[in-house]
Design a protein around this nucleic acid. Structure first.
Lengths: 226, 226
DNA sequence: TAAATTAATTGTTTTGATTACATTATTAAC
DNA sequence: GTTAATAATGTAATCAAAACAATTAATTTA
């Protein structure tokens, strides 16, 4: 049995989500090798002997986006024997929430953002992994305001509401949303307004820099962080 | 880099929890090999090439407890390079909730239940894994009545409340608990009572057999299962 | 067999959170 | 200065959670 285990390989795959062009989008790379050559996939790579899983995920994320110090959380480990057609590859999936403004990706033939509502054909079980990351993001949103990880540093309440609506896939009442949002701990009202490109200017808000780390989703739940 | 990955090993470890002697307890095995020979550990084993992770966890659970078809959920994957002193072993941890009545374990020198509040010295990072499983169990309890997985088939509301109190580590109000418990979907009031060993007999309840499977914690949240 | 003991059972009030819902205010464009 | 577009705001109704004590049904003991 020991010999049998020797041929497992382990990777990390990172679902990188952002809000861009009024849609929730995921970063995909086009595979240039078999299997699934030419199909889109979420970024990933082998785990090195010297690094732990979080570090591997951070590395993959940095390789693709040039950013670090962002919201990153282990999602689930996928290990179906048939998920990779040629080998036994177990993948530890992570998901990351990034601000599209922080990332300067020259979208190319082989790398780019894709709306989660309109995904291309994906390699391996990556469609399932993305679906699960969306579910987890919704769950997180219900207990802590992670959406601000997707927003620009300064944002309007309307933008924030839009982010919630995209993630939760439903319309929210404007007054109720604002009432709740403005009592969220960590939200700071600025004395700045949008440069009224047209119409009435909107007040800008920001979030104080809560250290959200990736340590096993030890999140702050409502009321526990007083 | 490919060669480097060839030396990872992957295991599953299963935190098996039950309520026994009025305490939350975890099943531990004493290691008879190095490393950590003589230390207690949670049951685990290598993942076989032919099985997926859930199947590996079910197998480990069955080997130790002779039970299957119980509550089992993937917990987290631990992959610190130093968690195993001699090798690079990544472990996918699961947790299981079992009824102590369903398990006939002859507690021995090498296998037995230990109160989670009073754990012996543990091998590897198993203490951390157990702590995390307790946190997850509390989170699950808040959104669905998994505690019945720990209770006998027929139980009194007082027993159910006790289970909640052990998991949540706090006292609950009797009337509020009963009000909420008796409106829980799936709880069935029986026309049976405890054989009054002493004092007033208590009504017995049971849970209708909800299929809780281990598929990636796709749990039924309040209100979503109507 | 009466009284004491032990645990089971039950309801109301208060409080806080969520939901539903429409008008006024501020700017730019014409 | 009128129009158009988006920002900003409050109140009533409903539901959920929390606080809180007396009565009932059995056994045990006197």
């Amino acid at each position: 049995m020991f010999n049998e285990t020797k041929t497992h390989e382990i990777t990390v795959d990172v679902v990188i989500l952002t809000i861009k062009n009024n849609a929730l989008q995921v970063l995909l790379v086009k595979r240039d090798n078999e299997p699934f050559k030419g199909k889109w996939a979420i970024p990933g790579g082998y785990v090195r002997l010297s690094e732990n899983l979080d570090e591997a995920a951070v590395r993959v994320l940095k390789e693709k986006t040039q950013v670090d110090n962002i919201y990153l959380e282990q999602l689930y480990t996928f290990g179906d024997p048939l998920r990779h057609p040629n080998a036994r590859v177990i993948t530890c999936a992570y998901f990351a929430l990034v601000r599209s403004e922080d990332i300067r990706i020259e979208s190319s033939e082989n790398l780019g953002w894709h709306k989660v509502e309109d995904l291309p054909a994906l390699a391996f079980d990556h469609k399932e992994i993305i679906q699960y990351s969306l579910k987890r993001t919704r769950e997180r949103l219900e207990i802590c305001p992670v959406a601000y990880q997707l927003l620009p540093e300064k944002f309007t309440l309307t933008e924030m509401q839009k982010a919630y609506e995209l993630i939760m896939r439903k319309k929210l009442d404007k007054r109720n949303f604002r009432k709740k949002a403005t009592t969220t701990e960590g939200l700071i009202e600025l004395d700045e307004y949008t440069k009224s490109l047209s119409k009435r200017p909107a007040r800008l808000y920001t979030f104080e820099n809560i250290k959200l780390n990736s340590k096993r989703a030890h999140f702050i739940k409502k009321g526990e962080n007083k």
